[in-house]
């Protein structure tokens, strides 16, 4: 692991999925360029499910007592506060179903950010967010965190909509150390949940070793 990657992994607001053999095997399949598309979709859906489940662990809970069918009280917890998902189009939409599988009627906002060819800056093209998003915890969905350009723009859009920074959980499969650090520094409240931290990026700002263009592989739009 490079020192930068180690720095990310140590960061208190960065949460790496437990590096189990299962996760490593799943990630190996989706990183393999010879994996066929149906497998790519199936196995990345599995990783996404794990990520969403992990993300929910960082939401606050309150103590709650219930009575079991045995007539015995049980001291447990329940989630405090409401959540919503926000996916960064197009690739982030692939993570919506994973969230729905866990929270069936969750509200989901969408944001489209594209690079403005003239200025090379990420620009907001479209956003549709739940009206009461300011009162919610937000699971921000985008599978790959490379430079962080779109994710940062999206977090800004969320903040403008009144979302508190420490209520944003950014969920991704793979991140570059530069992108993750940049994002954590830029938003001192935001948390990141990721499956793996990679080594860096190539000249086109694709993550290395990475898995290529997630959206193209998931939706089958590669050449």
């Amino acid at each position: 692991m490079s020192s930068l990657a180690a720095q990310v992994a140590e960061h208190p607001r960065f949460h790496l999925l437990p590096q189990t053999h299962q996760l490593k095997a799943l990630m190996t399949i989706i990183r393999d360029k010879n994996t066929k598309r149906s497998d790519f979709v199936f196995y990345s859906d599995r990783v996404i499910r794990l990520l969403v489940e992990e993300g929910l662990n960082y939401l606050p809970v309150v103590e709650k007592e219930v009575t079991t069918p045995m007539g015995v009280p049980f001291k447990g917890v329940s989630f405090q506060g409401r959540i919503c998902g926000v996916s960064i189009m197009r690739a982030g939409e692939s993570m919506e179903q994973g969230l729905r599988d866990v929270c069936t009627s969750v509200r989901i906002g969408k944001v489209l950010i594209q690079r403005d060819e003239r200025t090379a800056t990420p620009t907001l093209y479209y956003s549709k967010l739940p009206k009461d998003i300011a009162d919610r915890w937000v699971l921000l969905l985008d599978p790959m965190l490379a430079t962080g350009g779109s994710a940062i723009k999206c977090a800004e859009v969320l903040k403008e909509a009144g979302v508190k920074e420490d209520r944003i959980l950014f969920i991704n499969l793979i991140c570059s150390p530069e992108g993750a650090l940049h994002m954590l520094e830029k938003f001192p409240g935001l948390q990141i949940i990721s499956a793996e931290v990679d080594e860096g990026m190539d000249h086109r700002k694709y993550i290395l070793p990475g898995l290529g263009d997630f959206g193209d592989r998931y939706f089958g739009t590669e050449d």
């Binding site: 189009m89 197009r90 489209l112 594209q114 093209y125 479209y126 959206g215 939706f219 089958g220 739009t221 590669e222």
Partner: peptide, 24 residues
């Protein structure tokens, strides 16, 4: 293969506006 087209109605004129196309 899946393609996606994002079309949004203009709030005042109701004319469709194309925001995004990604087709295989």
């Amino acid at each position: 293969h899946y393609g996606k087209i994002l079309i949004v109605g203009d709030p005042t004129t109701h004319e469709p506006r194309l925001h995004y196309v990604n087709l295989p």
